[in-house]
């Protein structure tokens, strides 16, 4: 499992969890017991020597460097959880293990992209806060969107459908029957008097308000 390959990162995470818990602080002995896997005293000592952690009367705390690392990890982890639940529909048991794998490989750029894609969420699916990233702190307007509703595309543009968010069951069934489903590429033919798009080899006309519920990643021409 992921824990074995990234022991330092797991320690950073566990300290975060402890600080978030009712106790409000991370006792060294709790960390050493380890919730998932035991942590060796050498590992902690190494981390203190590397300037990631400090120990103060049996309580472990982050240094500035450590805090940065931990924030990035937790943020990636929780963003990944959101991504999996909201977009990819991965459930319960799979969710945790996948998020654990993801947190270690997400680059800051990728985190920013996911965060933007998801509209800068503030909580993970379990209700814990997601540490704010630079992209969230910058004004939302400045952020370059990755995902657009189909209704914002101009004639001639195309994109790949990422998800459809509608509360109408029938509408969704109808769209899917016509091949308008995530993963498919859509090309906009015209926007007035009515939206006409091509999916696969089929031309489909539909209301703008329905287009507003179909989200896609625009494809740059050529």
């Amino acid at each position: 499992m992921a824990e074995k390959n990234h022991p330092e990162e797991e320690v950073l995470e566990q300290i975060w969890m402890e600080q978030e818990s009712e106790r409000g602080k991370a006792l060294k002995e709790t960390i050493l017991k380890g919730e998932h896997s035991p942590v060796t005293i050498e590992l902690i000592d190494n981390m203190i020597r590397d300037g990631i952690l400090v120990e103060d009367g049996g309580i472990l705390e982050y240094t500035e460097k450590g805090l940065k690392m931990a924030t990035r990890l937790i943020r990636s982890h929780r963003l990944a959880e959101r991504l999996f639940t909201d977009i990819l529909d991965i459930k319960d048991e799979d969710l945790e293990s996948n998020a654990c794998t993801f947190e270690h490989i997400l680059s800051p750029e990728l985190s920013t992209a996911i965060c933007t894609l998801l509209g800068h969420p503030t909580q993970c699916p379990h209700g814990n806060p997601i540490p704010r990233g630079e992209c969230c702190l910058k004004n939302l307007k400045e952020v370059k969107k990755v995902i657009f509703p189909l209704s914002e595309l101009a004639a001639g543009e195309s994109g790949k459908i990422t998800y459809i968010s509608t509360e109408y069951h029938k509408r969704l069934d109808q769209l899917i029957g016509l091949g308008i489903s995530p993963g498919n590429t859509v090309r906009v033919h015209q926007t007035v008097p009515t939206f006409v798009i091509r999916v696969g080899e089929t031309d489909i006309a539909l209301d703008r308000e329905i287009c507003a519920e179909i989200y896609l990643r625009p494809l740059t021409p050529g």
Binding site: R171, L175, L178, D203, A205, L206, D207, I210
Partner: peptide, 9 residues
């Protein structure tokens, strides 16, 4: 109701 219409060639 929704306007979703397939346009045949």
């Amino acid at each position: 109701s929704d306007f979703i219409l397939e346009i045949p060639p």
